[in-house]
Deep mutational scan, measured.
Amino acid sequence: ASVAVIAAGTQGNIFATSALRSMRFLQILRMVRMDRRGGTWKLLGSVVYAHSKELITAWYIGFLVLIFASFLVYLAEKDANSDFSSYADSLWWGTITLTTIGYGDKTPHTWLGRVLAAGFALLGISFFALPAGILGSGFALKVQEQHRQKHFEKRRMPAANLIQAAWRLYSTDMSRAYLTATWYYYDSILPSFRELALLFEHVQRARNGGLRPLEVRRAPVPDGAPSRYPPVATCHRPGSTSFCPGESSRMGIKDRIRMGSSQRRTGPSKQHLAPPTMPTSPSSEQVGEATSPTKVQKSWSFNDRTRFRASLRLKPRTSAEDAPSEEVAEEKSYQCELTVDDIMPAVKTVIRSIRILKFLVAKRKFKETLRPYDVKDVIEQYSAGHLDMLGRIKSLQTRVDQIVGRGPGDRKAREKGDKGPSDAEVVDEISMMGRVVKVEKQVQSIEHKLDLLLGFYSRCLRSGTSASLGAVQVPLFDPDITSDYHSPVDHEDISVSAQTLSISRSVSTNMD
């Protein structure tokens, strides 16, 4: 405001104040949320940038038409019409005319000016109207692209899951042992070998009828009888010197917790746990005396209480009078009846079946994303299906024409109403129809010849004498029936064969 007042002088105070007050009108834009329509302006900018070359070309040609039209109309009207006294007036008329506004304040009066105005109007309006069409088509394409992008975003994750499931299904095939990355992934998420051994031990116990592997080994086996189970490696608790092959000598807290839970599941009659010990102070733990958990001091820290809870689970003690015997301790020893080589084939089979199920689920979810969402998608899918159906029908028609023997030239002739090819031409065609016709002709010829021969033979049998045999009239074959199959017997006289037959029969009768 200060700059405006200084620039306008003393009389500019009122002007500056009114100008600043008129800017209050811009507050109405906040009512229509114009300040939060950044996406709309961004869309407009992207459309203009995408079609910038077309817009520049249309505007450039339109500007050239405007300059030439205004100049030529000015030359034609400057002497006869006072409205075109300057080139600026003519340029104003050209702008209003070519933009199809047409105020009518300035019009050419001479015939030359009117002809020039009409010609440049028809030429220039087309170029001035091009930017509107370019922007409209650009907006339509952009909206369609955003629509497809939205659908693509919805299909991206199911497609990625389907590709991942397909690759993992491919890589978990037993015949592709060189693909090891997927197996490394499952090695990292699978439970430890100790848990798998416990699982298979329970399965084997159920197969043995509820007997433990130790009891199965204690059962008497006759001499020479084959053992029911192959000899396997035996594993004891981590306190002993022997372990399962492939295990580490260090046992983690999870393994100890699972070991304690498995020992508690063996039965309360074979294992008696004394009350857990509780320390009397955060600094020292008295293991010899058993106290109640309700006497825990409230001033303990979080670490002390955590250690106390761990001691409740991981440090059970047995009383002296209830101490288990050596046999019970041997039964409680952890027996590992299986090795990694025995378990891994079954584990890989389970993983393979899981990968198949996940692949089928991913495939079903991806197919669900291909379903249409709204009416536009339904129409688009219907149009695509219609085009596909037309293509299939056209391909089927082409194959039928190839089989029947109607080529493209014959199809055009039928469409024009011309006469089709004759039967002889159809026979000569190298097509399925021509071959079928040729075979039918040959079969008819053979059938006719057989009928003639059978009739001749029956007449010979009825006559009974050589004289009557020679008097029999043998009809000749019709050459038209034989089609294109020409037998060497067709052109010979059958009477010669009949005479030869009669001579042979007379000779045979004389010999008798």
Rank of each mutant, 00 (worst) to 15 (best):
residue 387 L to P: 15
residue 322 D to V: 14
residue 461 L to Q: 04
residue 284 S to G: 13
residue 191 P to A: 12
residue 301 S to C: 02
residue 328 V to G: 05
residue 478 D to A: 11
residue 188 S to N: 13
residue 267 G to A: 15
residue 410 D to H: 01
residue 284 S to T: 10
residue 199 L to F: 08
residue 380 E to K: 06
residue 342 D to E: 09
residue 507 V to A: 11
residue 309 R to L: 03
residue 357 L to I: 05
residue 335 Q to P: 03
residue 358 K to Q: 02
residue 401 D to N: 09
residue 329 A to S: 15
residue 427 V to E: 14
residue 225 A to G: 08
residue 239 G to S: 07
residue 332 K to E: 11
residue 337 E to D: 04
residue 309 R to P: 06
residue 352 R to S: 07
residue 214 L to R: 09
residue 425 E to K: 01
residue 451 D to Y: 02
residue 438 K to T: 09
residue 458 S to A: 04
residue 384 A to G: 03
residue 267 G to R: 05
residue 423 D to G: 15
residue 359 F to C: 07
residue 345 P to S: 05
residue 384 A to E: 10
residue 292 S to C: 13
residue 302 F to S: 15
residue 350 V to A: 01
residue 235 C to S: 05
residue 363 K to E: 02
residue 340 V to G: 00
residue 248 S to R: 10
residue 432 M to V: 14
residue 252 G to S: 07
residue 381 Q to R: 13
residue 443 V to E: 06
residue 416 K to R: 10
residue 171 S to C: 10
residue 250 R to Q: 05
residue 218 R to Q: 06
residue 169 L to V: 05
residue 500 T to R: 09
residue 471 A to G: 09
residue 223 D to E: 12
residue 346 A to S: 07
residue 291 T to I: 03
residue 375 V to L: 03
residue 226 P to R: 09
residue 180 T to I: 13
residue 217 R to Q: 06
residue 315 K to R: 14
residue 186 Y to N: 05
residue 228 R to S: 07
residue 284 S to N: 05
residue 290 A to V: 06
residue 490 D to Y: 15
residue 210 G to V: 15
residue 418 D to G: 06
residue 324 P to A: 13
residue 435 R to S: 01
residue 213 P to R: 07
residue 438 K to M: 03
residue 403 I to L: 14
residue 464 G to V: 09
residue 267 G to V: 09
residue 260 G to R: 09
residue 479 P to T: 14
residue 368 E to A: 15
residue 244 C to F: 12
residue 286 Q to E: 10
residue 464 G to A: 13
residue 490 D to E: 13
residue 348 K to M: 05
residue 295 K to N: 15
residue 265 R to P: 11
residue 341 D to E: 11
residue 229 Y to S: 02
residue 315 K to E: 14
residue 308 F to V: 11
residue 425 E to G: 15
residue 297 Q to E: 08
residue 252 G to A: 11
residue 469 L to R: 11
residue 494 I to S: 14
residue 279 P to T: 02
residue 480 D to Y: 15
residue 233 A to D: 01
residue 379 I to S: 06
residue 258 R to G: 06
residue 233 A to G: 05
residue 187 D to N: 02
residue 502 S to N: 14
residue 341 D to H: 04
residue 422 S to P: 07
residue 447 E to D: 06
residue 292 S to T: 10
residue 401 D to V: 11
residue 455 G to S: 03
residue 165 A to T: 09
residue 316 P to R: 10
residue 423 D to E: 03
residue 236 H to L: 10
residue 501 L to I: 14
residue 473 Q to K: 10
residue 336 C to G: 04
residue 507 V to L: 09
residue 227 S to Y: 11
residue 512 D to G: 14
residue 224 G to R: 07
residue 509 T to N: 15
residue 298 K to Q: 05
residue 205 R to G: 07
residue 486 H to L: 07
residue 230 P to T: 14
residue 423 D to H: 04
residue 191 P to S: 01
residue 448 H to R: 08
residue 507 V to I: 12
residue 320 A to P: 11
residue 393 I to L: 03
residue 293 P to A: 14
residue 436 V to M: 12
residue 230 P to S: 05
residue 218 R to G: 08
residue 177 A to D: 08
residue 383 S to A: 06
residue 223 D to A: 03
residue 310 A to P: 04
residue 456 F to C: 04
residue 290 A to T: 14
residue 430 I to S: 10
residue 185 Y to D: 11
residue 329 A to V: 07
residue 187 D to G: 09
residue 187 D to Y: 12
residue 398 T to S: 14
residue 276 P to S: 12
residue 218 R to P: 11
residue 274 A to S: 13
residue 234 T to I: 04
residue 470 G to S: 07
residue 368 E to V: 14
residue 356 I to F: 09
residue 355 R to G: 06
residue 480 D to A: 05
residue 292 S to R: 08
residue 511 M to L: 15
residue 468 S to T: 12
residue 498 A to V: 07
residue 262 S to F: 15
residue 386 H to Q: 03
residue 304 D to E: 13
residue 413 A to G: 09
residue 186 Y to S: 10
residue 303 N to K: 07
residue 429 E to K: 07
residue 196 L to R: 11
residue 214 L to M: 02
residue 250 R to W: 06
residue 268 P to A: 15
residue 444 Q to K: 08
residue 489 V to E: 11
residue 307 R to S: 08
residue 220 P to S: 07
residue 292 S to G: 11
residue 404 V to G: 04
residue 206 A to S: 00
residue 292 S to N: 04
residue 395 S to N: 03
residue 428 D to A: 11
residue 408 P to S: 10
residue 441 K to M: 09
residue 201 E to V: 03
residue 183 W to C: 09
residue 212 R to Q: 03
residue 311 S to F: 11
residue 181 A to S: 15
residue 328 V to I: 07
residue 197 A to V: 01
residue 440 E to K: 01
residue 170 Y to H: 01
residue 274 A to P: 08
residue 358 K to E: 01
residue 183 W to G: 14
residue 222 P to H: 11
residue 417 G to V: 09
residue 442 Q to E: 03
residue 445 S to A: 11
residue 420 G to A: 13
residue 251 M to R: 13
residue 474 V to L: 13
residue 310 A to E: 11
residue 198 L to P: 06
residue 488 P to S: 06
residue 354 I to T: 02
residue 404 V to A: 07
residue 266 T to R: 15
residue 481 I to V: 13
residue 195 E to D: 13
residue 446 I to S: 06
residue 173 D to N: 04
residue 444 Q to P: 03
residue 492 E to G: 07
residue 263 Q to K: 05
residue 497 S to Y: 14
residue 274 A to E: 02
residue 182 T to S: 05
residue 310 A to G: 14
residue 278 M to L: 02
residue 244 C to W: 09
residue 348 K to N: 05
residue 370 L to M: 06
residue 447 E to Q: 01
residue 280 T to I: 01
residue 481 I to L: 11
residue 427 V to L: 01
residue 294 T to N: 14
residue 298 K to N: 15
residue 415 E to Q: 13
residue 208 N to K: 05
residue 220 P to R: 14
residue 350 V to G: 14
residue 412 K to T: 04
residue 469 L to P: 12
residue 448 H to Q: 06
residue 396 L to M: 02
residue 382 Y to N: 07
residue 243 F to L: 09
residue 186 Y to H: 04
residue 178 Y to D: 05
residue 302 F to L: 13
residue 328 V to E: 12
residue 304 D to A: 14
residue 212 R to P: 06
residue 355 R to W: 13
residue 187 D to V: 04
residue 272 H to R: 10
residue 279 P to R: 15
residue 449 K to R: 09
residue 183 W to L: 03
residue 182 T to N: 12
residue 255 D to E: 06
residue 222 P to T: 08
residue 443 V to A: 02
residue 271 Q to H: 15
residue 376 K to M: 13
residue 235 C to R: 03
residue 318 T to S: 13
residue 170 Y to S: 11
residue 171 S to A: 00
residue 342 D to G: 02
residue 377 D to E: 15
residue 367 K to R: 06
residue 362 A to S: 06
residue 289 E to V: 08
residue 355 R to T: 08
residue 318 T to A: 11
residue 458 S to T: 02
residue 382 Y to D: 04
residue 176 R to W: 03
residue 414 R to L: 08
residue 255 D to N: 00
residue 211 L to I: 13
residue 240 S to C: 11
residue 483 S to P: 12
residue 478 D to E: 10
residue 432 M to T: 09
residue 278 M to T: 02
residue 258 R to C: 15
residue 325 S to P: 15
residue 355 R to M: 06
residue 243 F to I: 02
residue 280 T to N: 02
residue 474 V to M: 10
residue 386 H to P: 05
residue 477 F to S: 12
residue 432 M to K: 10
residue 325 S to T: 15
residue 418 D to V: 11
residue 356 I to S: 01
residue 283 S to I: 05
residue 420 G to W: 11
residue 211 L to Q: 02
residue 317 R to L: 09
residue 487 S to C: 12
residue 179 L to V: 09
residue 353 S to T: 01
residue 308 F to Y: 01
residue 216 V to G: 06
residue 479 P to H: 11
residue 388 D to N: 13
residue 227 S to C: 03
residue 323 A to V: 07
residue 195 E to V: 12
residue 482 T to A: 13
residue 197 A to T: 08
residue 223 D to Y: 03
